[in-house]
Simulated assay, not measured.
Amino acid sequence: MTTLGGTGVHAGQETPMVRPLGTADTVALRLLCERHPVANVFLSGRLEAARSADPSDLGGTVLGCFSGRELCAAYWIGTNIIPVQATPETNAAVAPALNARPRRSTSIIGLSGPVLDLAERLSAWGRPRWIRADQPLLQLGGPPLIEPDPEVGVVQPADFETVFRASVEMFCEEVGISPIAQGEEGYRARVGQLIGRGETFARFTDDLGGWPRPGSLRQVLFKADIGARSRTVAQIQGVWVHPHRRGEHLAAPAMAQVVLQTRRRFAPIVSLYVNDYNTRARRTYERVGFEQIDTFATVMY
Rank of each mutant, 00 (worst) to 15 (best):
H10Y: 09
N91Y: 08
V154A: 00
E70N: 14
D25I: 02
N99R: 01
S271I: 10
S52I: 07
A202P: 06
G113I: 10
S271N: 14
A49Q: 06
L221W: 06
E286T: 09
Y285C: 04
G22N: 04
L58I: 06
S105L: 15
D207A: 04
S167A: 02
L29A: 06
A124M: 11
A95E: 05
F164M: 05
L116I: 12
E169I: 13
R280P: 14
L208T: 12
V239Y: 01
T87G: 07
I177G: 10
N99V: 04
Q237F: 10
F290H: 01
D57R: 11
C33I: 00
G6W: 12
Q156C: 07
P144S: 04
P102Q: 04
G12N: 00
A74Y: 01
Q182P: 13
E174A: 07
Q182E: 14
I131W: 07
I146E: 04
Y273P: 03
D134N: 09
P88L: 08
R30W: 03
V9F: 01
Q135D: 12
T232F: 10
R197N: 15
P157W: 07
G153Y: 01
R35V: 02
V9N: 10
F201G: 09
N40M: 00
Y273S: 11
T106V: 13
S123V: 12
I195F: 11
G141H: 09
Q193K: 12
L140M: 00
R246C: 05
S56Q: 15
M170K: 08
Y301P: 10
I109A: 01
G196H: 11
G68A: 13
I108M: 04
S44T: 04
R69C: 14
G142C: 11
E173K: 15
G153V: 05
D206W: 15
T205G: 07
G183S: 14
R121T: 09
E184P: 14
D159A: 14
E34H: 06
P253M: 00
T15L: 06
A74V: 05
M1F: 13
H36E: 06
I81V: 14
G8E: 08
Y187L: 09
R165Q: 08
I269C: 03
D225S: 05
G227P: 01
L31H: 07
D149W: 04
A100W: 00
A95Y: 01
R213Y: 09
E291Q: 13
T26Y: 01
I82K: 13
A297C: 10
D117T: 13
P212V: 13
P243A: 06
R30N: 02
A53N: 01
S216M: 15
D294E: 05
G289E: 03
R46I: 02
A100V: 00
T23W: 11
L122F: 08
T87P: 02
L221G: 08
A133Y: 00
R190P: 07
